[in-house]
Design a protein around this nucleic acid. Structure first.
Length: 474
RNA sequence: GGCGCUAUCGUCUAGGGGACUAGGACGGGGCCCUCUCAAGGCCCAAACACGGGUUCGAAUCCCGUUAGCGCUACCA
């Protein structure tokens, strides 16, 4: 079996959306699984809407997800000469023809058809023009597009995910392949490029299935064998409609900014519409590649569930070491404009990561632990303290006193719980009444790791200072 | 309107004629653990769209109905 060659071909007219990212991922997985080549092609033939900035965002998004390409990026715009030559070749072969109908005429016909609740299909009238009429039009300089003569035959293929899909040529019209300004139309450019690049498997979104019979007609007109087609299902929003901006975050960059780990995003995306079979969900990259096959891709659309993505992220957060998480957390801290004074925050990461689902959760918690004064400045913390009232002040003062008795050498999580338990016992109060004020004073929150760990991670000096200050502040 | 695709818990899915009183995960509920919240462990509720076939037997195969989605440009 010859080497497989696949491509991901986004158009740089917007950000990299999760649907596109997943399509890219499936292509990449398939290439890795089969030892094939993954080509990145930027389809920038729509000069109006394509921008370099968008191209860069797409490249960055793929890189972030760890999707690497073996060839490219190839810019489709660089091949217009070939596209034009291909269209001209089809013209001279009689497989395509010049159409002199104007946009206005066509629009009027379309509107007419719509009024009668009929589907519009170009009637192919210019395909019947006698040579003399064509010459006259050309001599007069009448602008024209080039249309493919749609074969009146079955246009079917064995889709790798759907199975057999069949269209009839007579249901399709003679579509335009070259505009009047001689720029190529999508379907022509794609087929011309896929042939040139010797693409063996076209893995793309379900929204392209209706393009496929047109492209097959083009392959046949060129006398080329068509590749294997695999149409992956759409990604939907929670309301069952195609995922779009009004559903909130849809760009890969949104999730990066939101504190999602690339590995978690990739794992989650892979499981949207694909499954390795059995009960496995959290999959290392190598296992994902090993288990991947086009046939296991689901044929129905999938709803994008943010809650599950965040759960998945939490799984990765818990499993990763503080060392591995450090760069991500540091970057997030910087993005939040927080300076941790150059201290080693890895112990803090270890202390809080199990309670976090997002990198941003870790970062906000790390910020407070690195500088407990933040908690004191925090309104929420003050309100919590106020709510606890007199007991807060009294117990906090007592706790600070007891903790001052702990030597610097003994200031470790294992040795910080006992003095506090002893205090609660001797005063006859519940342990929580001693612990909770400390937690609030140090973090401005009623939620954190166990207090002994919290104290250890904050450090003796900073903790005692914060406790004393909080106890006397009211 | 036409053409096409799809149909298992709320969501992601396992399932490829008997192993199904339909399994797992997220989310939800409960219990345990516990100084709080997570994590972790245990438990509960929750689905084969409907109707016909085929078959000794159907979530699985076929047909129809219904519903949803996609496409229907000199966009990609």
């Amino acid at each position: 079996m010859p080497q497989t060659r696949v491509r991901f071909a986004p158009s740089p007219t917007g950000y990299l959306h999760v649907g596109g990212a997943r399509t890219a991922l499936f292509n990449w997985l398939f290439a890795r699984k089969t030892g094939g080549v993954f080509v990145l092609r930027i389809e920038d033939t729509d000069r109006e809407r394509s921008t370099d900035a968008h191209t860069q965002v797409i490249l960055d998004g793929l890189a972030w997800l760890g999707i690497t390409w073996d060839e490219g990026p190839v810019f489709q715009g660089a091949s217009v000469a070939r596209h034009q030559a291909d269209a001209d070749r089809l013209l001279s072969l009689g497989k395509a023809y010049r159409c002199f109908c104007t946009k206005e005429e066509l629009d009027a016909q379309r509107a007419q058809a719509e009024r009668h609740k009929q589907g519009f299909r170009y009637d192919g009238r210019c395909g019947q023009l006698p040579a003399a009429a064509i010459d006259a039009k050309l001599k007069a300089g009448t602008p024209f597009v080039i249309r493919l003569r749609m074969p009146q035959e079955e246009l079917a293929w064995d889709d790798a995910v759907h199975g057999r899909i069949t269209f009839q040529g007579h249901d399709l019209d003679d579509f335009v392949i070259l505009r009047s300004d001689r720029t190529p139309i999508y379907n022509l450019a794609v087929v011309s490029d896929d042939i040139e690049m010797q693409i063996s498997h076209v893995i793309r979104g379900d929204d392209h299935v209706s393009n496929t019979p047109k492209q097959i007609a083009l392959y046949r007109a060129f006398g080329k064998a068509e590749p294997v087609f695999a149409h992956v299902p759409m990604i939907l929003g929670a309301d069952g409609k195609k995922l779009s901006k009004r559903h909130g975050a849809t760009a890969v960059g949104d999730y990066q900014a939101r504190g999602i780990l690339p590995a978690a995003m990739r794992n989650f995306l892979a499981l949207l519409g694909w499954s390795p079979g059995g009960d496995r969900e959290v999959l290392p990259e190598a296992d994902m590649i090993e288990a991947f096959s086009l046939e296991r891709i689901q044929s129905k659309p999938a709803v994008f569930d943010t809650a599950k993505l965040e759960w998945m992220n939490g799984q990765y957060l818990s499993a990763l070491s503080a060392d591995a998480l450090l760069p991500e957390v540091t970057r997030e801290l910087a993005a939040m404009g927080i300076d941790t004074g150059g201290r080693d925050i890895r112990p803090i990461i270890d202390a809080v990561k199990a309670r976090s689902r997002l990198i941003t959760d870790i970062a906000t918690q790390a910020a407070v632990r690195a500088d407990p004064a933040r908690a004191e400045r925090d309104d929420k913390g003050r309100q919590l303290a106020a709510k606890m009232g007199a007991a807060f002040d009294a117990n906090l003062a007592l706790a600070a006193e007891a903790l001052r008795g702990v030597a610097a050498n003994d200031w470790i999580a294992e040795k910080l719980a006992d003095p506090l338990k002893a205090l609660a016992e001797s005063k006859g109060v519940k342990l929580g009444d001693v612990m909770q004020p400390i937690r609030v004073a140090l973090t401005g929150s009623t939620v954190s790791e166990p207090v002994n760990e919290l104290l250890a991670v904050v450090g003796r000096d900073a903790a005692l200072a914060a406790l004393t200050k909080a106890a006397s502040a009211r």
